[in-house]
Simulated assay, not measured.
Amino acid sequence: MKKIIYSITLILAVTLVGCNPLDDINDDIDANKAPISGDVELTLTDEDYDDLELSFPNFNSEDQAKELIPGLLTDKYPALKDNSSALVTYALYSPKREERSLVRYTVSDEDYDDLGHRFGNFDRESEIFEFLEWKYPSPEDRTLVSLTYDFYSGSTNTFNNGYLYIDGSWEEMIGFTNEEYQTMGEGFPNFSSEDEAAEKTPILLLDKLKFDGYAAGDIVGTMYKLFVTDVDDIDMDGRTDDRTTYSYVKYFIFDGANWSEYNDVLSQQLQFGHDGTTWVPDNTIKYTFTADDVALISDAFATIYEGPADNVGFFGSFDRRSGSSNYWNDDMLLEAFNVLLDARNPSAEDGQKYVLTFVVYTGSTGNETKSVIKEGGVWVYQ
């Protein structure tokens, strides 16, 4: 009844006084709601980046995201307070550098001899990088070497791959064979335009890299060729108005199913928690036990805590009655959490946090929650 009277009072105030728009009053009400705890997932939009007064719809660094996102969360979810969490997906500007200059080179018999490769080929990937460091001891940053060489792996084959010098080290750029250009519908071992390279290369990569174990988010560099005017006299014939083959770098990113051209922006996630005052970066994972989790714990402790392990496996709940012979005390639970989390997240680093929710029996069934953190390689209570 009080709520109804309050609403009528607000309407009368707006009608009679007219000094505040109804929307502003509703905003004030929302901002002063009783604090609640909740979990949200948010993917930032172009409008969100505009609200943050960023020139582009992405962050320049993870630190910038950690600095600016809390304010945005406060504006979007004013009622969410202590123990709330937010999983935020955002765009991170992460450019991959392309070539500034090009060198075309075919490894000679003398080169192989000078480096002690008496069979006239390389047979380990590391030997290619050793050759590059020997041949080009002080290259300019972003020099691309279009390298043709012989490689032995059961039989000797000739390859042409790119090697880009970036920030003091060489990075391989995957090249394409004459046959692969033909597969992509080209009459010559080159593309007719950059757009064509961007369109056709992802299709080829699906087959070319299908057994190489790439996962979602992996990025590969490729070297593709165009037949263009030789403005830099790459073929060293003294002319800059003739035509020759230039090599260029282009990157592609895998989403787990398909490759696409990489646009220098990565999709990243950050988790935030509300500490009662503000939103702070937080790696806490909220996890609810499954039947498989309970079975794993029951099996793992069958010979250590026979009664409690058998009981939890049968009923699916941890007996938390201190007088029961099947009682799981806090220390026993922590042992179980260690076994479970080491199995479910074996690569978790120190500092990783979990909020674990599991079914308990205290005379009736219900849920209990415990918070743990990994320290010194083991899980301990927070």
Rank of each mutant, 00 (worst) to 15 (best):
S138N: 15
S101F: 14
R239M: 15
L12H: 09
D63V: 11
L341K: 06
L132S: 03
L44H: 04
T290W: 14
F56N: 12
T74A: 14
N263A: 15
T357K: 06
E110W: 00
Q382K: 14
G273N: 03
L164I: 05
F289C: 03
K96Y: 13
K250L: 14
T89H: 14
A86C: 14
E179G: 11
D293F: 05
T45K: 08
P308H: 06
F318H: 03
Y152V: 01
S247K: 12
T284L: 02
V249H: 04
T222F: 05
Y6F: 15
V17W: 07
T143Q: 12
Y248A: 09
N329H: 12
L205F: 09
L164K: 01
V360Q: 09
M223Y: 05
T106K: 05
D113S: 10
D264F: 12
R321Q: 09
E140V: 13
E130N: 11
G256T: 06
D331K: 11
I219R: 05
G38N: 14
D232P: 01
N283F: 03
I8P: 06
M332K: 14
G313I: 05
Y105F: 13
Y361V: 00
T143L: 12
S193G: 03
N345V: 12
Y149W: 07
Y287I: 05
L72T: 11
I297D: 07
L270M: 10
A65V: 09
L334Q: 07
G363N: 08
G71C: 04
N367V: 01
P21V: 01
S85Q: 08
D293H: 07
N121P: 04
F56T: 08
G154N: 08
A34Y: 10
D46I: 07
S94N: 09
I25K: 12
S84V: 07
S325N: 15
S85R: 11
V380F: 02
D255T: 02
N338A: 02
G38C: 11
G221R: 05
T290F: 15
E140N: 07
V280R: 14
K76L: 15
E127S: 09
R239A: 15
D319Q: 00
S169Q: 10
